[in-house]
Design a protein around this nucleic acid. Sequence first.
DNA 1: ACCTTGTTGTTATTGTAGCAACAACATTTA
DNA 2: TAAATGTTGTTGCTACAATAACAACAAGGT
Lengths: 263, 263
Amino acid sequence: MKASRDVPNALLESLKSLGLTKYEALVYIGLLRTAGATATEVHEISGVPRASVYPVLDRLVQKELVSVSHTTPKRFDAVPPDQGVENLMRRIESDAQSARTALDALYREKGPGGRGDQELIWTIYGEENIRTRLAGMFRSAERSVEVLATWDLLRESMLKLLDPVPDSVPVDLVTERWEGEQPSRFRLHVLPLAVLQEIRFPADKLLPYERSGVFLVDDARALLWMEGIDGQPSALYSESAGLVLFVRRHITTVTEWARATVQ
Amino acid sequence: MKASRDVPNALLESLKSLGLTKYEALVYIGLLRTAGATATEVHEISGVPRASVYPVLDRLVQKELVSVSHTTPKRFDAVPPDQGVENLMRRIESDAQSARTALDALYREKGPGGRGDQELIWTIYGEENIRTRLAGMFRSAERSVEVLATWDLLRESMLKLLDPVPDSVPVDLVTERWEGEQPSRFRLHVLPLAVLQEIRFPADKLLPYERSGVFLVDDARALLWMEGIDGQPSALYSESAGLVLFVRRHITTVTEWARATVQ
DNA sequence: ACCTTGTTGTTATTGTAGCAACAACATTTA
DNA sequence: TAAATGTTGTTGCTACAATAACAACAAGGT
């Protein structure tokens, strides 16, 4: 009676990242389909060696995922899945909380400046991280904000990020199309640029150029939003004169060239 | 220059349960206090062997906890703690979600009854698990609900748990005192029982008997809420005739005896 | 030019800890 | 006795931890 051969591997991985070992996951899954099983039954159902079942069950009880009967032999039962996962998450959430505060304390120790940024080009991975960086750039804008990005990217949440830009700072948006009403807050330039829609790479391989953008603040800080074919967004950020100048030229060039072509 | 000897061990454990290894945690912590460090500097600050720093940094970049510069030598920077933890939690949360649904599917496969409960005495660990069990008991009540518990326990959230009891079912509450207005929904018996307040164990060692209670539903299902000295709540649940009878007697005995004594 | 010095990035090797797997044994129950 | 339960100890395995060694490259001095 080994009915547990069909345990999806993805499920095991998920449970592992919640702090369970392979055996713990297998035993818990096994117990979910068999109420009140003895240790030997657990062994049969889960495929875990009988001798290993005892320490594993101990750990699961400790983690509040199974309950034990007071009979001999002992019988075991699993708590319902949603609640079991909840119990695991509670621990992790608590760890996350204490880690957050402890790390924050360390983080604030160091002065914010730390010459770290100047003259360096940083790659940032993960959409969240990029957004955070952009929010910081916009918030600290003092003289100018220029954005050259595909509508796909703008629409999603870029516009919300632009809210904290001080009122005194002019904002230039360049994109290839615009849906919805035109915002009065920004200087909007809608240019149906082919460059922004698709590009052909090596020869005839059509490369979708979906979400990408270039952001320049105060002519001093630049961010390039890229997106690989895998869809994983990454970005370059820099305050170096070189990259800033490049971006400066890129934006003006595209704008000029597109204006000439279109009209 | 080894300024990292004072890394709290608890913090390392917390980060480990968020999916980081010891080295990953040390490197991330080190980077939090030093913006734009080279691999060698990371090695010096974190105490991690220089050769091990490279694979560790790779993993941290993959996990969206650090960003890389494009200079030579490469320079590394940590994302702010709250956001970093957020990035880690996002993965875990997603795993938890998929695990929940996958497990739920398995769980519903088996018929609910499965003779598992009868004649067995279960120990349940963890306050959440006990509450859930109680909620299930109350929801399925058909003839009677009897509760004998300290006010401390009742007040906290027991009253909310009693909401789903069908209106046709009488509910008896016995406790040692009552604060706030008396509920009309229940038959309330306030008995200033010394038993419920403190008991003396072996000889003169005063044992605080803070939160404990006995719950009986339909004269068929009983739960004993216990709480060790460590404050970790646990409970016994059973549908066995033996334990149910014991609880039945306990409640009536205490009630009778207290009534006789008090008046 | 040459050689030295130091740093960066990479690879290989060894050690270690926690989990996985099995064998063997003591204990209970029928 | 036989069968099943619960426990113990040993061994193997895998991921991580730790050290050593190496090639590539850039100063800097002679």
